[in-house]
Amino acid sequence: MANKKAFHKKESRSKPLPAETDTLTEISKVIEQKHNTGSKKVEICLIVISLLFLFVMLLLPLLVVVISALKDGFTAYMNAVTDSYTIKALTLTILATVIAVVINTVFGIFAAWTISKYHFRGKQFLVSLIDIPFAISPVIAGLIFILTFGNIGWAKGLADLLGTKIVFAVPGVVIATIFVTFPFISREILPVLNAQGKDEEEAAALMGASGFKIFRKITFPHIKWALLYGIILCSARAMGEFGAVSVLSGRLRGKTTTLPLHVEILYNEFNTTAAFAVSSILVILAVLILIARNIVEYKKKQ
């Protein structure tokens, strides 16, 4: 940001510079002017390319959703949105998202704190392990839970013991959501904690503060915006997760379908308008998340 300001300042300064006798400045001025006139065309060209690309690739799909959703009129739209299956799917989506955010927040804080505040062997390895869910196809994420808790899974007995079904049931949907969003929050907090160092915490510890007090009074104020940012990213991904959830849910309509799965079911039933109407709920949520993300990022920079 600061760099950019400096860049503009230099540019504006070079133009109205009063006639100087220094020939070197003259030469550099001429060169810069030449470059600026040449770059103006390039600038406009690149901006147009960028905007066109974004319009076609990102904005048009959004517009399609909105227009297709309202194609059969507002009543049809409202019917699809207030359908009881839609409401149930929305409830499950919110439930899975909230649980995923809570667990990943706990994990993210502990993991980032452990990695940034202590010395231990294999730290880089631990960081790589945490990032695994990023590298894994969501379908494979679903598969591993089927192989663990499903009919052929070695831990099926454990699930039976707890008296719950995991695969093709709500716990499976929740656990898949947790898995795919697992690294989000620790990833956002870790750079902030690393940059902050541990001098303050060590000073507090030497003065006799307890671990929790150190966290609450010193660490938390540093990471609160990064944490919020991570929570926003985590909920965005959690509510939209499709691959992993679709493998694990078994698509029991009204029971284990999240909103994205409900969209898929409607679409495959050629109920396109309803599919887009339900999608529009997710689009609205996505846009809200983007706005929140930008506000938080702005605050984080400050």
Binding site: L62, V65, G240, E241, F242, V263, F276, V283, I289
Partner: peptide
Amino acid sequence: FALPTAVAGIA
């Protein structure tokens, strides 16, 4: 990142 992949898919 924010738009659910299924929605992106059908759009």
